[in-house]
């Protein structure tokens, strides 16, 4: 899931004040931002109270089921069209994908209420770790299911680097070196990995990503 954190309050109000917005509609997200405790119903209601405390009028709020889904968000916006019409701005408590989807669905200026951080594994409730960077050129088959691109701070394919000490990472000193973990797990599984991993194909990560499964309707996959 996409991990987010609340945006600094001053940056939110600076944004709203930059267009002299007195009235705000709030849109949350029922997926990742709900699990991350940043944009679910609870946080949207808290944001409403905070905005009202600061002197803004909240014309209404909604929590989109999947706010990054264009069709669903357009539908959700139509359901609340009166409240959105009454607002000077829409504040979105979702990831950057959600913010842009809302911006494509309403005619009002849209502001982000969260910062988008990473694709996270949910280790347990409220504890998230980045394990995959969605690089499009997976090496997990060669690295015992541990991604060096993401979990090594330098993203080295062939490690460890010279900073490893007693099996620990140089940069994140409370963590075991990714390459030590990879080699140990490979050995435990009786796998041999002594060959150099070749340089990665970074063209798979060129922006912006685009996949279209509707081949018959003229789309193509990258």
């Amino acid at each position: 899931m996409i991990i987010t954190r609340p945006r600094e309050w001053e940056r939110i109000t600076d944004g709203l004040n930059s267009i002299d917005a007195g009235s705000v509609f709030i849109m949350g997200c029922g997926q990742c931002a709900t699990v991350a405790n940043t944009g679910g119903e609870k946080e949207v209601i808290e944001m409403k109270a905070a905005l009202e405390q600061a002197g803004y009028v909240v014309s209404g709020w909604a929590v989109g089921e999947v706010t990054c889904h264009l069709g669903g968000t357009k539908l959700e916006s139509r359901k609340h069209h009166g409240e959105i019409d009454d607002a000077d701005a829409v504040l979105v408590l979702a990831c950057g994908a959600g913010v842009q989807t809302v911006a494509d669905s309403v005619s009002k200026p849209v502001f982000p209420g969260l910062e988008s951080l990473f694709l996270g594994n949910v280790m347990r409730h409220g504890v998230f770790e980045e394990r995959c960077q969605m690089c499009g050129d997976c090496v997990l088959d060669l690295t015992a299911g541990i991604c060096p691109v993401t979990t090594c701070p330098k993203g080295l394919l062939n490690g460890p680097c010279g900073g490893m000490w007693n099996g620990m990472c140089e940069v994140l000193q409370d963590r075991e070196c990714t390459h030590v973990r990879i080699q140990r797990r490979l050995k435990e599984q009786g796998r041999n990995n002594t060959a150099m991993l070749p340089p990665k194909d970074f063209s798979t990560k060129l922006k912006p990503g685009n996949v279209n499964l509707r081949k018959k309707r003229g789309g193509d996959r990258p």
């Binding site: 701070p153 330098k154 993203g155 080295l156 394919l157 062939n158 490690g159 680097c161 010279g162 900073g163 140089e170 940069v171 150099m196 070749p198 340089p199 990665k200 970074f202």
Partner: peptide, 23 residues
């Protein structure tokens, strides 16, 4: 390989590491 930028005088720099030292 090179030290991580976070340990140097430009801690906000992007560490490139497109290749590693073996490569």
């Amino acid at each position: 390989t090179g030290d991580d930028p976070r340990s140097g005088d430009h801690p906000h720099a992007k560490g490139v590491f497109d290749l590693d030292s073996t490569q």
